[in-house]
Design a protein around this nucleic acid. Structure first.
Lengths: 330, 330
DNA sequence: TTGTATGCGTTATCAT
DNA sequence: ATGATAACGCATACAA
């Protein structure tokens, strides 16, 4: 019992076609082979339903045509969208994708990186907020949303411009006194530039602004306190609010309703990310949309690019504004 | 230049430890080895940061510790949730997961199945509505939501019971005249049992009901026509609506608002799936919740189960009702 | 108990 | 142009 119900190998094809092993390999890899031979081999491949074993291939070539995607989860819609588009971009290039959900666990993240360094995958695309992650410089790695040093390319949307755009939109909508609300990681990462961009935008448009920033672990209620403290005579002192994510905007919208504030009549609310209900119906709020398909394409392109010199440390892709019923229509 | 910056191999470890290749293999695989040898090998492994090449391992053992998940996409929240939980369940068992998004493309689906049959992966978990998909009986395969023959286990939630539960809830909420709305595949699949269950529930609770069913490709507007035709004197003739998915319920809710109908005051609306905004905030509607983590666990369990005899053709997992503001609170 | 040799499926380097 | 053969990293049957 050599190979019971196992898949046919090149050897089987060679025997079937009555040619040598090497000839089959050449046919499979598109190398020059005499036409009569080629035909016989192709017939045999058809007949046996042969398919190359890419692991054996990888064993030779030290190349697996597999890349790993490190991502906290696929439940969050932004992560889910990234996962999908990166998968598509890789498949277009005949690469497979190993999904590694890390749940923000630094140990798991490090484990996956180590795996890649040992040639189990050809590269990694990683979205991680772990500042201690060790990635050797010769490991093909592309980071999303967080710079991991000058040698590792980072892909993000243009968060700064997004913040500016939000400020500009609020100004266009007639706001005079706006607020920026942020929760999330205090680490240095690209999304944190949303704040700076927003400030810059407010300054250039003469908007007076206030900020409320809470860090991971602090309760959402902080924002409720903040907002209710800014209500006098039943009226919120802000006429525009920019939230660091659509998710936060969604929560804030509920809070504003609870506080009897009218959105968008009295308050313009803008989020960030461009999340849609059920993945593809409507936006949860007016929002700055991240170009997720383009970001995915860019990640894959950078990762598989041969020329290391051509890998820029940071690539920012353009964002757009989308109306989502929490602002007046312009 | 044999292996430039490549990963260390067993041979390297053996040389470093001053032992034979086979000894290293035994240490790695936990086979009995003399203590002094084991120690030296372990030291060498540490020192070189050695890690087994699982592709070479798989080449020998015809086992890759990798399974493929066939799923249309990860954008749809239900698919996204399944993907995440299956990934977790596999990682717990030290299996890797190849993500194969198919976009409902039958050709792609077949390609992935063929790949698995050639021992590139140890098995497949597949959510596909392709009735022509050919899966050989000896290929480890677990289907989600669609039976693919008696030899292939299918995992689903208890869709029939879910339909019944929806009817019962509507009855409890005081509804007298309800409607069932369904869009989607006309193929025989598990979710289609929601309709039968709902009918059974209505009959046993004495609810009069009507159905509106449209198939893939027909426009959503059909439902708008249907609903507006059932309005007389500004009032909808239904006091309860069960939608086949949360997604449809979400769309229907908007339509009802457009038609000036009050939910939940005048109309109780129940969906199916248990989708939450942003993955983990609140439900979009009152809904029948699928036990996604349990379904994921069951898929993996069945797939990796040795004993083929113990693989039941269909496993239905219990659903629950969740309040989501489109019904009165009970 | 430890070392040696062979084969897994493929590619590439040789002769032919 | 085609066929034989070694090598990739590992597991294992067998020899020592």
């Amino acid at each position: 019992m050599k190979k019971e119900n196992s898949a046919p190998t090149m050897k089987d094809v060679a025997r079937e076609a009555g040619v040598a092993l090497g000839t089959v390999s050449k046919v499979v890899n598109g190398l020059p082979v005499g036409d009569s031979y080629r035909l016989r081999v192709e017939d045999a491949i058809q007949k046996l339903n042969y398919q190359v074993n890419s692991y054996a291939q990888g064993l030779k070539a030290n190349k697996t045509y597999t890349i790993a995607l490190l991502i906290p989860n696929t439940i969050d819609p932004f992560y889910a969208s990234l996962t999908y588009h990166i998968n598509i971009a890789l498949m277009k290039r005949k690469y497979r994708m190993l999904l590694c959900t890390t749940d923000f666990d630094p140990l798991l993240e490090q484990e996956y990186v180590t795996m890649a360094q040992h040639n189990k995958v050809d590269g990694i695309i990683g979205l991680t907020y772990n500042p201690n992650l060790i990635v050797e410089e010769n490991t093909p790695f592309v980071a999303i949303d967080r710079s991991m040093g000058p040698k590792i390319p980072c892909v993000a949307c243009d968060n700064f411009a997004g913040g500016q755009l939000a400020a500009e939109k609020l100004a266009e909508l007639g706001c005079k006194n706006v607020a920026f609300l942020r929760s999330g990681s205090a680490l240095v990462n690209e999304p944190n530039k949303r704040k700076s961009g927003f400030e810059a935008g407010c300054l250039s448009r003469g908007l007076s602004y206030e900020m409320k920033i809470i860090n991971d672990g602090e309760p959402y209620e902080e924002f409720e306190y903040f907002l209710s403290e800014h209500i006098s005579n039943g009226k919120l002192s802000f006429d525009g609010i920019f939230c660091v994510t659509d998710r936060l905007a969604y929560l804030v919208l509920h809070t504003l309703h609870k506080l009897n504030q009218q959105v968008p009549e009295d308050i313009q609310l803008i989020g960030f990310d461009g999340i849609r209900s059920f993945g593809n119906i409507d936006y949860h709020c007016s929002t700055i949309v991240q170009p997720v398909p383009e970001m995915a394409e860019m990640c894959v392109d950078l990762l598989l690019r041969e020329n290391m010199m051509m890998k820029p440390p940071l690539v920012c892709l353009p964002v757009t504004y989308a109306y989502g019923r929490t602002t007046k229509e312009i």
